[in-house]
Write a protein that binds this DNA or RNA. Structure first.
Lengths: 365, 365
DNA sequence: CTGTTAGCGCCTTCAT
DNA sequence: ATGAAGGCGCTAACAG
């Protein structure tokens, strides 16, 4: 309950109280020229500023009668404690930073939702920042967050080089990074087991008789891509099928690139019978491209995506995919962060979320 | 450029400088026991605190030599001005609040993205808050935002009763509400022209020969629902077709409710030939339900959705829908808010975003 | 139980 | 061109 106190203050109670009597906010309040301060409340109540502070913060050492008197004045003056002023003293802001590459992408919005939900239950507010996949923008966001004195930071798919990321992370009291590894920096890390994901996908394709399986993957620096590729490769080799580098196509993992990727892979391997895509957006683009080439999914080529965003279930044929619990990933990251904030914990610690295969028509049993 | 200064401070420049020489953050910095303060920088530079403050804020009255000396010290001490302390003095925080019902919904994530993008360009950070459609949670979020002294608030689809919303809004220096009207409160308002949207949808259905058109709408209190309903009704009446109340089904506008809605409408009107849904999620659910009943879309029943979320283009048959530029809606709202912040503007002002019909297979030409 | 004294880190206003 | 004093609104440590 401590963290909640920090951000909501006693007013959490006031709100509930308000609601239970008439559902209407106190209408008998001052014309808000300038906010009422604690000093003013103290003056009106005929007590010292400290007494008000104690009431506001629910400290014990206040007689019930003065507490009531002060509360009364607070309520009908519409006073709200300034968390800015409080933060200046306490050096804590009850505020977190969350940096993602693209909010308007179901994967990240789900993740954001998980983080926010967990933050809310613990009395934190979060600054949501969108890098737009742009490192320069990421830099200026981090500066801004530092100036705001956030209590902790969750950084998702950072585009900064290792050394720079390490230096940036040191400037925050608690940091969790998602979908990236940075050993030796003492950070918290939340990861998807992409190796497993790749393995699940390919194993499934192999089990259902596919042998010439293409991979549309992301940029070489991307950790997710590396993991999925490694799962792909391992599954093939475990099955005694040689890994063929030409069947791996690298591109930005967005829908628009899929057509080009498909064309290329087909030119290399006309009798391709399986395709594993870095994410569902790419997979959906691939489905479209394959259809244009008159190739039937899944009869000719079976397609597997990654993430299981809502579209996956709705395209035709519906997409077989590696489902990642993105909300869960977000809340786990947040829990990790909270733990680090509370214990000033700077030990490395990792949580891993495992994807699971969801079989649909694009690559049926 | 003023707003940018506020949030990024001079460090915006520093970052760029850093990047242009080696792309690496200054590694020669102190062990961050406690943050370096301005006083400390002043001491090291052998100048007064004020001189440092002037340098940090790019004031003119500093000799070039001392400015350089101070900048040097700032850079290799890793000093960052505390925006908390600054806010306490200036009474401005450079932060905004954005409250939405559900981040993990493509409509709102697009809107959030528009707001964030616009906020970023103007040097503001935004607190993103999720009400989960829960009024009580909305209340406590607003209290929290007020304590944080945000400079402005964007409130999307508020669930608070008029009087309470009015009272809450008064507590913030600048407010824009989205998808809701509250005349007489002096707020900025960003709206979708839902009446037009309803009209477009129904006119299209009528033009393509549909006559018995059902409506799956949201709760009666919802402004969006009211607008769309009114457009539906008007289009029918303009065409000389009597409005039939039984063809309007009210439910929570989520996918899960669609099946029940379809069942009900079909029981009332077995030869239904058109269906207008409150949003695409519902429409998608309806498509599914209709298929289960062996009803063919669009041959038997033509279906029109609302929003044009990504799924709309991918379902089969692809959804005809009223496209709302949600990113645009978000940036417009943000611009409106900025204008109000800058001019302490409390006049009512409305921006309206018009939907447009996107014709696909579920209700073809 | 209540009040007093010191700041938190910075900016504003006035001197110099 | 620079500095000193005072205060933003609040809490932490001590008094009593």
């Amino acid at each position: 309950m401590k963290a909640v106190d920090l951000a909501m203050g006693f007013l959490y109670n006031l709100v509930s109280a308000n609601d239970s009597d008439n559902g209407t906010a106190n209408s008998s309040q001052e014309p808000m020229t300038h906010r009422i301060t604690m000093t003013e409340v103290a003056r009106r109540a005929g007590v010292s500023l400290m007494t008000v502070s104690r009431v506001v913060n629910n400290k014990e050492d206040v007689s019930e009668s003065t507490r009531q008197r002060v509360l009364k004045i607070i309520e009908d003056s519409g006073f709200r404690p300034s968390s800015i002023a409080r933060s200046l003293v306490t050096q804590r802001t009850g505020t977190l930073g969350l940096v993602v590459p693209d909010i308007d992408n179901p994967f990240f919005s789900g993740l954001v939702s998980g983080v926010e939900s967990q933050a809310y239950s613990n009395g934190y507010n979060v600054f949501l920042c969108n890098t737009n996949e742009d490192a320069q923008r990421e830099r200026s966001i981090l500066v801004s967050l530092e100036e705001k004195m956030i209590d902790g930071l969750i950084l998702c798919s950072s585009r900064l080089p290792d050394e720079e990321l390490r230096a940036a992370a040191e400037r925050f009291p608690a940091v969790v990074i998602i979908s990236r590894q940075l050993p030796g920096a003492g950070l918290g890390t939340a990861l998807i087991d992409d190796r497993l994901g790749g393995n699940l996908a390919i194993t499934h394709l192999l089990r259902t008789g596919r042998r010439r399986i293409g991979l549309i993957t992301g940029p070489a620096i991307s950790f997710s891509s590396q993991g999925r590729l490694s799962g792909y490769r391992q599954a093939l080799e475990d099955a005694g099928i040689p890994f063929r580098d030409q069947l791996v196509y690298r591109c930005r993992p967005v829908q628009e690139e899929a057509a080009q990727a498909v064309r290329h892979l087909l030119s290399i391997c006309p009798n391709l019978d399986g395709l594993f895509c870095h994410n569902d957006l790419v997979a959906v683009g691939a489905l479209q491209a394959l259809k244009q080439y008159g190739i039937c999914v899944p009869d000719d080529v079976a397609v597997v995506g990654y993430d299981d965003i809502p579209i996956a279930a709705w395209v035709t044929p519906a997409l077989t995919t590696c489902r990642v619990e993105r909300f869960e990933l977000g809340s786990q990251a947040m829990r990790l962060l909270l733990e680090r904030i509370r214990n000033s914990n700077h030990q490395e610690r990792e949580v891993v979320v495992s994807p699971r295969l969801v079989v649909r028509q694009s690559a049926p049993e």
